Simulated assay, not measured.
Amino acid sequence: MKPSDNSMRKLLTAILAASLAGPALAFDLDSDDPISVSADSARLDDGKGIATYTGAVVLVQGKTRLTAERVVLYRSVEGLNRIEANGSPARYQQPVTSGEGETDAKALNITWSAPDKQLTFEREAVIEQNGNVFSGDIIHYDTEQRVVTAEGSEDTGDGPGRVEMIIQPRSSNNSTQ
């Protein structure tokens, strides 16, 4: 009996969500750690609450790190509420909160939205964690509900792009020698 595409998608999403459940992939506005930014150039429009950084941008909060060619920060009266990063690729890294390892995510566009509590990786998106790999054209990660949703690319004539996963087997303490 072959599982339907829909049931397979639900299973794969559940597996990925479980594998990514350790970290709360996002910058933490409630943290006492400041967010520091370095870049080749910066432009601040204080009236609009927009800061644009270009050229080898590095944004760091604690052990969370975002690198990109261009980063735009949006502030409201409540504070920082959106980060948009572009690169070839832009890269997001954060240690796993439970256990060892690191989440390493790459995409041409990365967006973090504080109000939506969501990270979005678009175009050539790949998330790696402890040997598990998840790729797709668009990957959304709800940092509060810890739900991952992924989409393949549109059909370009060669067939639609697919969401792909590599899931490592659980290590066994009962290995024989």
Rank of each mutant, 00 (worst) to 15 (best):
102 E>F: 04
149 T>S: 13
136 G>S: 06
134 F>K: 01
118 Q>W: 02
171 S>F: 12
112 W>Q: 01
103 T>E: 03
100 E>N: 14
112 W>E: 02
166 I>D: 05
145 Q>N: 14
103 T>C: 02
166 I>T: 15
151 E>M: 08
161 G>W: 00
115 P>I: 05
123 R>E: 11
111 T>W: 03
100 E>M: 12
108 L>R: 02
153 S>A: 15
168 Q>A: 10
124 E>P: 04
113 S>A: 09
148 V>N: 00
105 A>D: 04
153 S>W: 00
106 K>C: 07
117 K>H: 13
155 D>H: 00
144 E>L: 09
157 G>D: 07
109 N>F: 14
113 S>W: 02
163 V>I: 04
117 K>W: 01
119 L>K: 03
173 N>R: 14
158 D>Y: 08
145 Q>R: 15
108 L>T: 00
140 H>V: 07
158 D>Q: 14
157 G>H: 07
114 A>D: 03
172 S>D: 13
116 D>V: 00
153 S>Y: 04
111 T>K: 03
125 A>F: 08
122 E>Y: 01
147 V>S: 10
99 G>S: 09
133 V>K: 13
162 R>N: 14
119 L>V: 15
170 R>S: 11
149 T>K: 11
145 Q>F: 01
120 T>D: 12
155 D>G: 02
115 P>H: 06
144 E>A: 14
170 R>G: 09
105 A>G: 08
114 A>S: 10
126 V>L: 13
161 G>H: 05
139 I>V: 09
100 E>D: 15
148 V>L: 15
145 Q>C: 08
112 W>M: 05
102 E>D: 11
107 A>K: 03
151 E>F: 11
130 N>V: 13
153 S>M: 01
113 S>G: 08
156 T>A: 14
167 I>F: 13
134 F>S: 01
115 P>T: 08
151 E>W: 10
139 I>L: 08
124 E>I: 01
160 P>D: 13
152 G>E: 04
172 S>F: 01
116 D>E: 15
174 N>W: 05
174 N>V: 12
155 D>A: 01
104 D>T: 03
111 T>A: 09
143 T>Q: 02
123 R>I: 10
174 N>G: 07
172 S>R: 09
158 D>W: 02
104 D>F: 06
174 N>C: 06
156 T>P: 08
101 G>N: 05
151 E>Q: 13
145 Q>S: 10
152 G>R: 03
140 H>F: 13
99 G>Y: 10
158 D>R: 14
149 T>E: 14
140 H>S: 07
141 Y>D: 05
153 S>Q: 06
119 L>I: 15
133 V>F: 08
136 G>N: 06
160 P>N: 12
113 S>E: 02
105 A>W: 00
